Simulated assay, not measured.
Amino acid sequence: MNEVQPLVRARNVQKSYGDNEVLKGVDLDVMSGEVVVILGPSGSGKSTFLRCINHLEELNAGSIMVSDSQPGYVLKKGRLQRLPPRKIARQRQKIGMVFQQFNLYPHMTVLQNIIEAPIGVHKVPREEATRYAKELLATVGLSDKADAWPGNLSGGQQQRVAIARALAIRPELMLFDEPTSALDPELVGEVLAIMRNLADQGLTMIVVTHEIGFAREAADRVVFMDGGVVVEQGPPGEVLVNPQHPRFQTFLSRFI
């Protein structure tokens, strides 16, 4: 019987900026359909690790496989070779990412923001891209905002557009890097509701967040990082209720 392989396989992932060693050997598997929430204090390496998965940051050592490839590279004759930027962009079609800041193009309408990558990078016909973009806007509750400018939307609405834009490439994996940290408190709930809906649909998600409630309700597994390593992980009903590591206990005590 063949063993099911993880969708994401990170092994001994290391990343430094000069003398600052941010990731010190991260190992993590994420299965297809799993929702993994990464918690940890500021500076623990959470966001850097997420950016390494998508090859927005280059590893100093180790490897990250997404499905059957290592983002940023191609295997030729037993050796990894760096891909040029255009091919990396095509390779990233497997991975959608939502950032802290919404990063919408201010000179494009909501609809134009969503269809830009499918048409420009992935060569999806405009009619097909537009049809799917409108479906996604309905999914995130913004059907009436297709022709709006990002500057005329609330922060919560902009982040929901950013989620729709990330989904427009039909990714296998969605990465969320503290997607509610730039929002006013009253707008956080509307974004988390969309994310819970995506989790319920079985989309594979890795979420860096400080929203303990989301981790408790939507995660299949919670990972706690500190000092550039994975310190503890497990089902939310276990690790959030009875954390074993003192650093995780101290971290969670701030939210009680």
Rank of each mutant, 00 (worst) to 15 (best):
R126D: 15
Q81T: 12
M108K: 12
P106K: 06
L136A: 07
P41M: 07
R86V: 13
L50P: 02
N113G: 04
G40F: 13
M97F: 02
T130L: 05
N113M: 06
Q112L: 08
E57A: 00
R82A: 14
K123D: 15
K46L: 08
P106E: 08
P85A: 01
L137D: 12
L39D: 09
Q101V: 06
M108F: 14
K87I: 04
S69P: 03
P71C: 10
G45D: 12
Q101S: 10
S47I: 13
I88H: 00
G62W: 01
I64V: 15
Q101D: 07
F102V: 08
Q70E: 15
T130I: 01
A133R: 08
N60V: 09
R131V: 07
V110Q: 07
P84C: 02
R82L: 13
I119F: 07
V37N: 02
L137P: 08
H107N: 10
K87M: 10
S67H: 14
I114K: 02
G40S: 06
V121L: 04
A129P: 07
E135R: 10
L39C: 10
S69Q: 13
I88Q: 03
S69D: 12
G43E: 03
L59K: 14
E57D: 07
A129Y: 13
G43I: 02
R131C: 13
G96R: 00
F102K: 01
T109H: 12
L136I: 08
E116G: 08
T109R: 05
N103K: 06
P118H: 07
F99L: 03
R82T: 11
R92Q: 04
P118T: 01
L104K: 01
K76C: 13
E135T: 13
C52K: 03
K77V: 09
Q81C: 07
A117F: 04
P125G: 05
E135C: 05
T48A: 05
I115F: 09
K76I: 10
E116M: 10
E135Y: 10
R82N: 05
K77Q: 15
G78F: 02
G78I: 06
Q93H: 04
R86L: 13
L104Y: 13
Y105W: 15
T109F: 14
P85L: 01
V110A: 03
S67Y: 14
L39R: 12
K46H: 02
V110N: 07
G96P: 05
N113C: 06
A117G: 06
K94R: 13
R51L: 03
K123S: 03
K94P: 06
L75E: 14
N60H: 11
P125I: 01
